[in-house]
Write a protein that binds this DNA or RNA. Structure first.
Lengths: 206, 206
DNA sequence: TAATTAATTAAACAAACGTTTAATTTAAAC
DNA sequence: GTTTAAATTAAACGTTTGTTTAATTAATTA
């Protein structure tokens, strides 16, 4: 789907409001007002509110596989590769945290009739790349064979998102006062914690 | 707050619908219809839709601290204690997953004016108990001192919730066909994975 | 420049929203 | 059995919802 400037402008406002107040908690009138366009433009450009969300998914979930694969082709040690993969995934989901939040919530609903193809595709690619990486490490005797590979990604992403969803709790626990120090915390301390966790898990012998 | 049978009946229907379709995605008329009471009963009993959610929090977040503390008083080894703590926390959040889901989403909104005291209290208790446990293990030389203690709980709960929020994806990955096998998976494989992760993290030497 | 397509608008649409009202039925207390 | 309080009801309240309409303006093409 080709998007012009105005469409992207609308999508970015929608992303912000959906993440802040939920899909159902945001009205198309709010979006149109904040994006400074007429209400009818949303139907005109996207067809409906739901299809607008689908367009947002397509817009945000692009170019994931390529970047992840370029990390894996590097000639560095296995622990270093874990560090790079985790750092990349955390950076990526932190950048797209708003869209992920919307998806996390809307996707788990039974009712909604939204097409999550783009999101699931990225999830699938993410899983396959990591599965191949871990199996390689196991074959070379670097990683433990007792690890449940499909649950590695939930541990990485889950740790980040639980932190993010409860950021009001954890920022007060860590004395993070503004948005900048939160970004910094994510890219240093939180990333390091997840790297440490995954490295420990993959080398742990019960 | 004292709750009579009818109020509990309403709250349990509300919990189910809120978790399925979101707070904003659920109407009081839906709740009243499914709970087989008149719409006005919700205002009559709880005052408003938002206060009904607060009542649900109070109802679901009780008796957490006592149960967790009784585990810690057991005379078992540190790794065994980790296993028991993780199993308890996972069992508990899985049982209350619907309410946690509602909170996870509503709490991270800036707009909403809901009182999350009961939820935050449980979170705080959970953190303090685990902090004390880990520090004890560190003092005795069993646990690594490089661990970021406030991020242990996000790793436990985050792994569970990321799995739960993407259950449609992971159940197809694990070939889980019905609700029973999902329950079983959570209490065996997923719990074991998280136990393994936390034990590895706490004993990992970089 | 004229014709055609795209973009933008204000107004209207029916449906659904949370909450309140006032009347009625049921239960408890005396 | 009468009085008082609690529970339940159908109907109405004013807003807000997503979407559509039909008219107008702007941009592109011929």
């Amino acid at each position: 789907m080709e998007l012009n400037e105005k469409q992207i402008q609308i999508l970015e406002v929608a992303e912000k409001l959906f993440a802040e107040n939920g899909f159902d908690g945001t009205s198309v009138r709010q979006i149109s007002k904040e994006a400074d366009v007429n209400v009818a433009m949303i139907s005109y450009y996207f067809g409906s509110k739901e299809k607008m969300l689908e367009a947002l998914l397509g817009y945000r979930m692009a170019d994931f596989k390529i970047q992840l694969k370029s990390i894996l082709s590097k000639e560095i040690s296995y622990p270093e590769k874990i560090d790079e993969i985790v750092a990349f995934v955390v950076m990526r989901i932190h950048k797209n945290r708003r869209t992920h939040k919307i998806v996390n919530f809307e996707y788990s609903k039974d009712s909604r009739s939204i097409n999550f193809e783009k999101y699931l595709q990225q999830k699938d690619e993410n899983y396959r790349v990591i599965e191949a990486f871990v199996k390689n490490g196991q074959k070379e005797g670097v990683f433990s064979k007792k690890v449940n590979i499909p649950l590695i990604v939930p541990t990485i992403m889950g740790t980040y998102f639980h932190f993010y969803y409860n950021k009001r709790f954890y920022t007060s626990l860590h004395n993070l006062t503004d948005e900048i120090s939160l970004d910094e915390f994510v890219h240093t301390i939180l990333t390091k914690h997840i790297q440490q966790t995954i490295k420990a898990l993959l080398t742990y012998a019960d």
